[in-house]
């Protein structure tokens, strides 16, 4: 017995130490958000006391300064529409190019796969200019850009799954008089559900947190949450640390809530995405 208990204690000790390291930074930001901004940089590890506690003042100031709720709204709008568009359109495209084999469709497939390895900086400048010229520098235009830029990984994942399912059912549906569209949405799309969830999660994580593309494209008029947080830093002036702490907390809360409710899917999706990507 003794030999079994001892390693267990060591394991737990190690795990608990790591837990503290993982949670502490968030807790420190949390309690600093209730301190007066003059006491944050000077003594970030001290808990708020009677002198330094300012209640929700930092929150009101931060929300007002960066327009937090409007940023939250735009982040949500852009993420939901982009993820929806990506799941629907790329699954359709993946099905078509997997089932309708021709030189053109396989060239297309390789172009999509190729785009996965290209870093954003490669197209940063030219994409911004192209989007400006085509008047895509607005939230809906951004959704369209995300569909194009996110299509590589999504098509790769959908195609991989579609290749593994037999086409007999689809053929039977077509013989019974279903049009390709009906076949896709009634027969194929429901079968793709696990992959759709994975694709949705991977893209949502990326788009919700993306800073550079929305900043370059729509940042001067519309702020998403990452743009709003970065905006607090401003030009050369000093940062209002109080507002910064409060906004960091507000930026993290929705993510943690979403994570706790859909943890199972997120971890599964991330593992599936990693194994295939």
């Amino acid at each position: 017995m003794k030999r079994r208990i001892f390693p267990t204690i060591i394991s737990y000790t190690l795990l608990i130490i790591f837990c503290v390291v993982f949670v502490a930074p968030i807790l420190i930001v949390l309690y600093n958000s209730f301190k007066s901004r003059f006491y944050i940089s000077d003594a970030p590890f001290e808990l708020p006391d009677a002198d330094t506690f300012v209640g929700l003042e930092n929150y009101f100031e931060g929300i007002d300064k960066i327009g937090f709720f409007s940023a939250f709204g735009w982040s949500l709008f852009i993420t939901v529409l982009s993820v929806g568009a990506i799941v629907i359109f790329t699954s359709m495209t993946a099905w078509y190019i997997t089932r309708h084999k021709s030189r053109f469709t396989s060239a297309l497939y390789y172009a999509f796969v190729f785009s996965m390895i290209v870093p954003f900086q490669m197209v940063m400048f030219t994409l911004t200019k192209t989007a400006n010229m085509l008047s895509l520098d607005n939230p809906l235009g951004l959704v369209f850009i995300y569909l194009g830029f996110g299509s590589g990984l999504s098509i790769f994942m959908f195609s991989g799954f579609i290749k593994s399912i037999p086409s007999e059912i689809e053929e039977a549906a077509m013989i019974d008089g279903c049009s390709p569209l009906q076949t896709f949405f009634r027969v194929v799309f429901p079968v793709l559900k696990p992959t759709s969830i994975t694709v949705a999660i991977l893209n949502a994580m990326w788009i919700w947190n993306d800073y550079l593309l929305p900043y370059l494209l729509i940042g001067s008029e519309y702020k998403t949450i990452p743009i709003a947080v970065q905006y607090l830093k401003g030009g050369y002036g000093s940062i209002d640390m109080g507002a910064m702490m409060a906004m960091l907390v507000l930026a993290i809360i929705p993510i943690i809530l979403f994570y706790l409710f859909s943890q199972k899917y997120i971890i599964k999706g991330v593992v599936a995405g990693a194994v295939k990507g």
Partner: peptide, 19 residues
């Protein structure tokens, strides 16, 4: 046009042309 064109148009504008 229904299955491929929307994705392809976005892909051309967001990736192929800028690349």
């Amino acid at each position: 046009p229904i299955f491929v064109l929307p994705t392809l148009a976005a892909f051309l504008i967001a990736f192929v042309i800028p690349f």
